[in-house]
Amino acid sequence: MEEFTNESFLSADIPKIEAVEFEHLERDYLYMRLLALGLAFLLLAGALVVFWFKNDIALWKLLLPYLLVLGGIIVLELKGFKIKSFALREKDVSYQSGLIWYKHTSVPFNRIQHCEVQQGVLARLFDLATVKVFTAGGASSDLSISGLSKERAQQLRDFITQLSAQHE
C-alpha cells in the first residue's frame, strides 16, 4: 500500500470544482420566474381586495406588508438568479443555486443512468426547458438545470447522454 499523509490524500492534485467557470442561465428564465411570481401576487391581491371590502380595516395595513413581501421576494429572485448556474467538466456536471440556502451538486458522467429534457407550460411560452439528470435508485432526478433555451437544453442532454454512454 502506498504511503501518504492525511494532508496529501485530500488536497493533493485533485481537481477543484471551485476553480471552474460556471455558466449562467438564460435571462428569460428570470423574467419567467418574475411573471409567475407576478401572477401569484395578482391572485393574492384579489383576495386582499375582497377582504378589505368585507372588513373595516385601514388600507395601508394591508398594502404595506403586501408590498414589503413582494419587494423582498423580487430582491431575492434578482440576487438568487445570479447564483443559479451550471458547469460541465470533462467528467461531471454540476449545478449550484440558492441565496439563503446555497446548494451545489455534482454528478459524474459514469454514474448517470439517463438524462432528459422537460418543458413546462410557462416555459414553453419563453421557449425554455429543463435538463434532468437521473442516477440509479432515486425516485426523483438528482440534478435538474432549469432555464436553458430549448436548443441549448437539447444540446446539453445529447452531450451528457453521449458521455455517460461511454461508461455503460
Binding site: G98, I100, W101, Y102, K103, H104, T105, S106, V107, P108, R111, T135, A136, G137, D142, L143
Partner: peptide, 9 residues
Amino acid sequence: QSVKYSQNW
C-alpha cells in the same frame, strides 16, 4: 453516485 454541498446563511 453524486455529492451535494449545502450551506445556509
